[in-house]
Amino acid sequence: MLEATLNLKLLEQCSKCGACFSICPSCMHIPGYDPRAVIRDILDGNHDKWLSSRHIWQCLECHYCLEMCYQHYGFENAMTALRTIAAKKGIHPTQVKRGWEMFVKTSRLGEPALPARKKLGLPEPKASGADEFKKLFALLKAAREKHENPEGKGSE
């Protein structure tokens, strides 16, 4: 439910194009960063070899490739897909893990800095939606389980 998927037909065109390479900041400034090689491997069925690579996390999600792309697709879709697979296997950077855990637990990536707010004369921060978010997240997980296991076998 609500999973992102990769369009291999579009990536096939991608492998013959490469137009966005010259505008991608990571291609320009990070030695060895080259989504074209990644896409070739995905098309050859060898995406596995990138899962533990730093490079898939070095995509800055700046959306330059998306804007350049005549298919309106973009390198970043391939990189995002590989990052998601890597994360499912637990091989993602520590800070990403930490960020995700905090998000799931608190619905935010940090709490308002109260003493500093007071000093600056800022009003009390508004109530967060943490409780409702937690309910919603649980509902999403339950809906997925039902989707994967429609007979109601197994847990829940």
């Binding site: 993602h92 960020g99 995700w100 998000f103």
Partner: peptide, 17 residues
């Protein structure tokens, strides 16, 4: 009632839904 927007790199990479 707002929560994190959520931040793309930390959330979308893990769970698009």
């Amino acid at each position: 009632g707002f929560t994190c927007c959520p931040e793309r790199s930390l959330v979308n990479n893990i769970d698009h839904g």
